[in-house]
Design a protein around this nucleic acid. Structure first.
Lengths: 197, 197
DNA sequence: TCCTATCCTGAAACTGAGTGTCATACTGTA
DNA sequence: TACAGTATGACACTCAGTTTCAGGATAGGA
């Protein structure tokens, strides 16, 4: 067991190829439009066979949305790292800093990515699906923060979902402003949308 | 123009066929599992050609999820009918009564439908996508309620998304309880998840 | 009643995504 | 060098969804 823990030469090579394929796919999608590019095109552009491409990414969408999975893990990780006495909303807001930080580090790349996703229904749908997959993990992390564990996960689930919504609405507005607005400010505004009542 | 307003004989026939096809599809999916039923199977079971079936429903998923579209329209309609001086959250909660009322009228049907959607990733994803489509309309309706229209749709969008999340979490829990819990109570609980802070 | 424009249907061909299989080539290890 | 595990490419296959086209039903007016 534990053959997955140590990264050997093969894993490194695979990761490199994977990121290379993702890059090629992203460029091609951006240039030609997601729907106008077939898996054959992607494979040809990357210099691998169709089989290989589909082995690295289970679907065309996944070639673009690997970043979304990573974001989810990072958010959950950041949430778990928050002090236990912090309020849920503050902890969630701070956990989302991992995402805004990514946008601050590469605004142009993030903007182009957002635009591609927003103008491609298939990518938007798949993104929603992936983000929806974050919910259980976030809710679980929230539940473990509360001293007297909630009777069930309803309240944590709602808060997890709300946080993700805030992120999405903020990113949408940020993207609509062509990156001109400040994402952290937008996110604060979004979180404030249910503060007063 | 306006040939779509008056419902003539043809429209009635089409609606009847459509609902018949949806019924056949639902039964077959429930019995065999969504992924184990092909469009050919559906067409054969309904006694129409594959072409016809795909003309009535753009996709396999849509054969099941027509109800979701209707729910969205109903929620928006109900929201617009709420008194203007009502708070956003109350108005949203009351608008969602249209959905809970549907569950109360046919609990067994609603339960089976929820179970089918929850155990079928493709249906879950498509449902999320459709519900995400409600957001702009709900946000717009909220924005029009506010006297001094908000600078932008950020706050209404967040509130719209949150309301839909509450619905989903509540329905998830209701489904997990096999319909044993009270959906309205769950929904109230969900809405209370961000009241105190 | 007949005529005509419109719409519905079924048949068929086509594209493209995703799955499964198999033989071959490569890579690290003993 | 020989061996075992793995990645690759080629190929066949299923199925969803689109498009085209021809024939048949129907509504509504003359």
């Amino acid at each position: 067991m534990s053959g997955a823990v140590r990264t050997n030469t093969r894993d490194i090579a695979r990761a490199a190829i994977r990121s290379e394929l993702a890059q090629v796919a992203f460029d091609l999608f951006r240039r030609e439009g997601f729907d106008n590019v077939t898996v054959n095109d992607l494979a040809a552009a990357a210099g691998v066979s169709r089989s290989t491409f589909l082995r690295y990414f289970g679907s065309k969408e996944d070639a673009v949305l690997g970043a979304v999975d990573i974001q989810g893990e990072q958010v959950v990780g950041a949430l778990r790292a928050r002090p236990a006495d912090e309020g849920d909303w503050t902890a969630l807001r701070r956990a989302l800093d991992t995402v805004t930080e990514l946008h601050r580090r590469d605004p142009d790349g993030a903007l182009v990515m957002s635009q591609l996703i927003m103008r491609t229904p298939a990518l938007g749908a798949r993104t929603l699906e992936k983000q929806n997959g974050w919910r259980p993990a976030i809710a679980q992390a929230l539940a473990e923060r509360a001293d007297p564990s909630w009777p069930d996960l309803l309240v944590p689930s709602v808060r997890a979902a709300v946080a993700v919504d805030c992120l999405n609405v903020a990113v949408d507005h940020w993207t609509a402003s062509d990156g001109g607005l400040d994402l952290d400010a937008l996110l604060d505004e979004a979180f404030a949308a249910f503060a007063p009542g």
